[in-house]
Each structure stands twice: as structure tokens, then as C-alpha cells.
Amino acid sequence: AEKTGIVNVSSSLNAREGASTSSKVIGSLSGNTKVTIVGEEGAFYKIEYKGSHGYVAKEYIKDIKDE
């Protein structure tokens, strides 16, 4: 099942092309942005936001229960 997560940073969080800190940054998400978690790979979540996919470090995403 898809989960919703909240970007848990004070400034912004980089979204990357792949599940690695050396992957190209494809965008950034500001704190408290809601994202859909579609998968996980190592220390990263694969997320969907406004129709695009990217990878973000798990430690900066807070899971919330689907309402």
C-alpha cells in the first residue's frame, strides 16, 4: 500500500534521480511537503510528488498514517 510521508526538514530536501547521494539532484522539496512513498531502496524512499518520481533520504521523511 502507498504511504504518505512528510518532508521533515527546516529548509529543503533534495530529491534525486537514484537511491544514492551521488545521484543527480532533480528537485527540492520544502519542509512539511506531503509526498507519496511508493517504494524503498536502502536508505532511500522512492517518492511521487506532483506526478514525478524521485529518491529522498529516509531519515528526512516522517511517515504519517493514511487518513
Rank of each mutant, 00 (worst) to 15 (best):
H53E: 06
K46T: 03
H53Y: 15
D63C: 15
Y60N: 05
A57K: 10
T4F: 14
S20Y: 08
N32Q: 10
I6Y: 11
V35M: 02
V9R: 07
G18Y: 14
E48A: 10
K46P: 01
G31P: 15
G18Q: 13
N8V: 12
T21D: 13
A1W: 15
E17A: 12
F44M: 03
A43M: 10
I37G: 00
A19N: 04
E48F: 11
V25K: 05
F44N: 01
S23H: 07
K34E: 06
S23T: 06
N14P: 15
V56A: 01
Y60I: 02
K62I: 14
T21V: 12
K46E: 05
G31R: 14
A43K: 11
K58C: 03
K34N: 04
A43V: 08
G39P: 00
G51A: 05
T21Q: 10
E17P: 05
V56D: 00
G18D: 09
S28I: 14
S22P: 03
L29A: 01
E48I: 15
Y49F: 13
G5R: 04
F44E: 01
T33V: 09
S11G: 15
T4S: 09
T21N: 14
L13E: 02
G42R: 02
V9K: 08
Y60S: 07
I6F: 10
T36N: 10
S12I: 12
I61W: 02
K3N: 04
I61V: 07
T33A: 08
G5H: 03
V7G: 03
D63A: 10
V7T: 06
D66T: 12
S28L: 12
S11C: 15
G5K: 04
K50W: 07
Y55G: 00
A15Q: 03
S20I: 06
S20M: 06
E67D: 11
A1K: 13
G5V: 04
A1E: 09
V38A: 03
L29N: 00
G27F: 15
K50T: 04
G27C: 11
Y55P: 00
I37R: 00
S10Q: 11
A19W: 05
K65H: 11
A43N: 12
K50A: 11
K34I: 13
F44Y: 11
K34C: 12
T21M: 15
V25N: 04
G42C: 07
S30F: 12
G39N: 02
I47K: 01
G31E: 08
L29W: 04
A19R: 05
G27K: 04
I47G: 01
V7E: 02
K3W: 15
G54D: 00
T4N: 06
V7I: 10
S23M: 06
T4C: 13
N8A: 13
Y49P: 00
T4H: 09
A19V: 07
E2Y: 15
N8H: 10
A43W: 06
N32L: 09
S22N: 11
E2M: 15
A1L: 14
D66G: 09
Y60E: 05
E40F: 05
E67P: 11
K58S: 03
D66K: 09
S52H: 10
K62P: 02
G27N: 03
E41L: 07
